[in-house]
Simulated scan of single mutants.
Amino acid sequence: MKIEKFAAIDIGSNALRVLVANVFTDKNGHVDFYKNSLIRVPVRLGQDTFTLGEITNGNIRRIIKAINIFKNIIRIHKVTKYKAYATSALREARNCDVIVELIKNKTGIMVELIDGVKEASLISSVRFFENIDKKLNFLYVDVGGGSTELSIISNGIKIQEKSFKIGSVRLLNNYVDSDIWDEIKDWIKENTNGIDDLFLIGTGGNINKIYKITSSKNDNIITLNELKNFKNIIYQLSYSERIIKYQLNPDRADVILPALKIYLNVLKWSGASKILVPRIGLSDGIIQELIIKKLQN
């Protein structure tokens, strides 16, 4: 068996992450991976972009520092392949091109800006999706800080997908078009019409945390009733109380409320009664993309 390490850098709206994965190839040429190390740095770029239109100098310096740290982690692990992607907060910033060039000059890391559809495609490429029951119909929803991606998966095939400019950080700062809720509702109604027994698949840091808090079983499922009960409790708590009661990071304790609102609305409009939470994210999708390219070569 051959084992090597790949890494993924994810520059998101609420945080920066680096995932180091152990990638193993068996004697039959089958390739898979599991997580070795994941480091998350709370740099809320969306706060800048969605309110000011650009990333501030202070946060640019924090990005450079974080990526230099990530670079050293990659070196220590002797990573053989890596990729760095940035999503809506950096992509939509007026000074994104300057920042990407600065990152390259200061760290040697090339960052690629990707849209919401590409982000959803990467996440849904993870092996978990190969193992879902092909006879079932799924509405896949990924809620990030700056955008929400929706995809319809029927008979194991993605038949519709769309990215919406609504996310936990945007909602927190009231920078969401008032018509966006109706757009999401209409899209879901139109594209799930006639589809029976729809299940939701939810990804994103907030739904992962909600699952950890609410689930009494290890079945990767949150029911609608569990989510409603959680909402009734957490909405009564102050910011500080949320941090203490649920041991939340400060940068999670505020965005978890708007994210919860998105998931509950998607459940209501789709008629689904439960969410399957695979606990994967963009970083996993980047690793899977590197594996696919390895196999192609």
Rank of each mutant, 00 (worst) to 15 (best):
I152V: 14
D133W: 04
N105T: 06
S88I: 00
R170Y: 03
A86S: 13
V143R: 06
I153W: 02
G146W: 03
R127Q: 12
E101Q: 13
N173P: 15
D97L: 14
V117T: 11
L136H: 01
S124G: 03
L102R: 11
Q160T: 00
A120M: 07
N131H: 12
I109V: 15
L171D: 11
N95D: 02
E130D: 15
R127A: 10
N105V: 03
K165E: 12
M110E: 15
V117P: 01
K135S: 15
M110W: 04
S124Y: 12
E161P: 00
D133H: 05
K118I: 11
D97E: 14
I157K: 12
F164C: 03
I109P: 02
R91T: 09
G146D: 13
E101Y: 08
R170G: 09
R94Y: 10
L102A: 13
E161R: 08
D97S: 15
D142M: 14
Y140F: 15
R127I: 01
D115R: 00
Y82M: 11
V126S: 07
L122I: 01
E161S: 14
I114N: 09
E161F: 06
S88R: 01
V126W: 06
I159E: 11
I153H: 07
C96K: 14
T148K: 10
L150C: 11
K135F: 06
L122D: 08
C96Y: 10
A86V: 03
V141K: 09
G156R: 08
K158V: 09
D115S: 01
